[in-house]
Design a protein around this nucleic acid. Structure first.
Lengths: 115, 115
DNA sequence: CGCGTATATACGGTCAAGCATATATTTGGA
DNA sequence: TCCAAATATATGCTTGACCGTATATACGCG
């Protein structure tokens, strides 16, 4: 992957919010991301496809759900960029709100509940 | 500045090369950047304007030359992102080549010579 | 099978961002 | 005051990226 492609992925608000959420929560399925961000399913899915093609995330099928998480083998400097970004952004109210929306989702497929 | 705007700045190859060069060299004028990257002057100037408007760099007039450097007051996490990126990229041959082109420039305005 | 849910992709339209070329502005020096 | 060098901006064009809507695919269950 070209380095400019990494930043192009991060330069879209939807993709950035997805990544910040995945870093905070570990693994989420598409319907959880859709609910947390309050966006349409095709929109989320399309952006996840971008992140997948850029090897920033990987997916795993669990029954009818597809769980996404950060890619296991991110280059060190990419991981460093993402961590520095998440440390800052996940403290901001807009990003906190995404996680709160996630918690308020009824019948979450994977995990039980939020802290 | 919005966080997505930071990454949008970094997602253009010309701007990223300029920033990596400024991190490595400290302060450079437009003609030095133009020579190092082998691109047209208006193109470099336009991209520097973007970086300036995003508060990623600041400029300083010295006679007929305008010297650019990283902005003195970058937020900590932005600095962390840039440093992690530069540590990786400035080892790569394409980026090393930019610095070598800079050294081969005759009559460099500011500094004397390269190491 | 046939249906509902979850997810992915295809299609057409719109808009932002980049480019090359040309020109304007500022400065230093004859 | 005039010219050349350094830098910035304007103009018109093209391309790529995003969006919404519609549709396709895959899975679980009866």
């Amino acid at each position: 992957m070209l380095e400019t492609d990494l930043f192009k992925q991060l330069s879209d608000a939807t993709r950035l919010r997805c990544l910040m959420l995945l870093i905070a929560e570990g693994e989420l399925c598409v319907c959880e991301l859709t609910h947390a961000l309050g966006l349409s399913q095709p929109k989320i899915s399309r952006h996840l496809a971008h992140l997948r093609q850029a090897d920033l995330v990987q997916d795993r099928r669990v029954g009818q759900w597809i769980h996404y998480r950060l890619h296991d083998n991110l280059p060190g400097w990419v991981r460093a960029v993402l961590d520095a970004t998440a440390t800052e952004l996940n403290r901001r109210s807009e990003y906190v709100a995404d996680r709160q929306n996630l918690c308020s989702m009824p019948n979450r497929p994977g995990s039980a509940c939020c802290a």
